[in-house]
Design a protein around this nucleic acid. Structure first.
Length: 238
DNA sequence: GTTGAGCGTT
């Protein structure tokens, strides 16, 4: 979705993409266009946005026609205050100008020793690599966290639901416990032989899952919803 | 309405 490309990326052959980071989430290509265009010829500007919300991710890609211009823009616009935030301009890793890297990763960066790595000590390098990735992967955006939490909740809920009905042992044990408990504290027997006025269990512990047609009907009696819900009685002033 | 390390499409 290039701002300048009516339908996709323009037919440019040699273009250098610059990655603009640290820009405000409200900064748009139109805002960066004049800034970058002033220092060089901007071929295209693309700002990746969220597919769910559609908001900017906080970085943009600026394509320059010449590398010297791009380098100049990087040096000049890098650290420029935009919307109250300093944007960082640097060469993008991917793009038409880095086709050699896109083909097979980075092959010109390191000679890549074909021999075994047992004579070297990659431990230090690995540690650094992990640390760097962890640092940037740590925080990404409010969307990622939110989505992850939602997903986790769903999974937990689902698992619990199934585990509840798929446990013969638990079921048996619970049934026995319940049976004994009920027999032990039988409200009826207790109230008749022990102290009737000192044990009001039925009032304090009403069975929520047990629903008798008669009882439910009583609850639904037009005692609580008649006054409030009645549209006719709802006329404070008229 | 928020946030802040990174790498791209209709």
């Amino acid at each position: 979705m290039s701002r300048f490309g009516r339908s996709g990326p323009p037919p440019i052959r040699d273009t250098y993409s610059l990655l603009v980071l640290n820009i405000t989430f409200r900064t748009t290509a139109d805002d960066l266009f004049p800034l970058f265009d002033k220092y060089g010829e901007v071929v295209d500007i693309y700002i990746p946005r969220d597919r769910r919300t559609g908001d900017s991710r906080g970085f943009a890609f600026v394509r320059y026609k010449y590398e010297d211009e791009a380098q100049k823009a990087v040096d000049r616009l890098d650290g420029r205050l935009v919307d109250g935030r300093e944007m960082m301009v640097q060469f993008a890793k991917y793009g038409p100008n880095a086709e050699r890297i896109q083909k097979g990763r980075i092959m010109e960066t390191v000679p890549k020793p074909r021999g075994r790595s047992r004579s070297r000590s990659p431990r230090r390098g690995y540690r650094d690599d992990h640390r760097g990735r962890d640092s940037r992967r740590r925080s990404r955006s409010r969307s990622g966290d939110r989505y992850g939490r939602d997903r986790y909740r769903e999974r937990d809920h689902h698992r619990r639901s199934r585990s509840r009905s798929a446990s013969p042992d638990d079921y048996k044990r619970r049934g026995r416990d319940r049976k004994g408990g009920r027999d032990s504290l039988s409200p009826a027997r207790r109230s008749t032989s022990r102290s009737p006025l000192k044990t009001p269990p039925p009032r304090k512990t009403p069975p929520p899952r047990e629903g008798s047609p008669a009882r439910r009907n009583d609850d639904r009696s037009p005692v609580g919803r008649n006054d409030d819900r009645s549209p006719g009685s709802r006329s404070p002033s008229t």
